[in-house]
């Protein structure tokens, strides 16, 4: 349980930060605007079973979990490395690299899931989204773990804000729009569909709309788990190679 002090420290800092509006604005306002703008603007003209707003609300749920897990983790790690110089405290402590990674990743999961719960409750109350399935819940937790681990790896890799923007613009933003949050990926051209169907956000969006543990659900969950584990081990590797001379 060496990861617990790492997690508690991150959570304590989050609790202090949460009083500031920045956390809510970056984490929640963005998906809410998308939900309202696309839901109201396009909702009546898009023909999707169950209604477009309900479809979009699940997509926004996946996006907000992804965004909060990833971005808040990158920001926490890069600020600790570059501005506050607090990451060296963590790295020097007698906590193994895997426990540092797990503690940070669980903090990212918490950030993502808390944001997801707020979006979900709002959607449930105001947009009539149905109760979440266990498949969807599993998908959201795994995607939170996947993207918080990715946030650790990116936070350890980048050397400044510009590189963070590159990752955001070339990886996160395309996933936001092409992975089934706004429309079914089956609508994409065949070659693009083949590329995006195995991306973590596509798998999560798929799981959010499944209601039975059939082969497709198990396959999606297993794939997402494998990707999550791969990214998690990558994040451990980045922490292991933390080097203040670079």
């Amino acid at each position: 349980m060496g990861w617990v002090p790492v997690y508690k420290r991150e959570m304590l800092m989050l609790i202090h930060r949460i009083g500031g509006m920045g956390y809510f604005i970056t984490g929640l306002l963005f998906p809410m605007i998308y939900l309202l703008a696309f839901g109201w603007g396009l909702g009546s003209s898009v023909d999707i079973a169950g209604g477009y707003i309900a479809y979009l609300a699940k997509g926004m749920l996946a996006i907000s979990v992804m965004m909060n897990s990833f971005q808040q983790t990158v920001i926490a790690i890069s600020a600790a490395r570059f501005y506050h110089k607090t990451f060296q405290t963590l790295k020097m402590s007698p906590v193994s690299n895997s426990n540092i990674a797990f503690g940070m990743a669980m903090a990212g999961v918490t950030r993502g899931v808390v944001a997801g719960i707020i979006i979900y409750v709002t959607s449930l109350l105001f947009f009539g989204v149905e109760v979440m399935s266990t498949q969807g819940a599993v998908g959201l937790v795994l995607t939170a773990m996947c993207f918080s681990s990715f946030g650790i790896a990116v936070g350890m890799f980048i050397n400044g804000q510009e590189q963070f923007s590159i990752v955001n613009n070339f990886i996160i933003t395309p996933m936001t729009f092409f992975c089934g949050s706004f429309f079914p990926i089956a609508n994409l051209p065949d070659i693009v569909y083949r590329l995006v169907q195995y991306l973590p956000l596509s798998l999560t969006n798929g799981l959010l709309r499944m209601y039975q543990w059939d082969f497709a659900a198990v396959e999606s969950a297993c794939l997402l788990l494998v990707i999550t584990l791969a990214v998690y081990f990558w994040s451990i590797n980045r922490i292991r190679h933390y080097n203040e001379f670079k």
Binding site: K8, R9, M13, K85, S93, P94
Partner: peptide, 25 residues
Amino acid sequence: LVPQVNNIEPELTVRESMICYAELY
């Protein structure tokens, strides 16, 4: 280590920072 740069977590009080440090160790 006491580094050159003061690196107590800006969000935490001195006591909280020390408790976190103690728990890490």
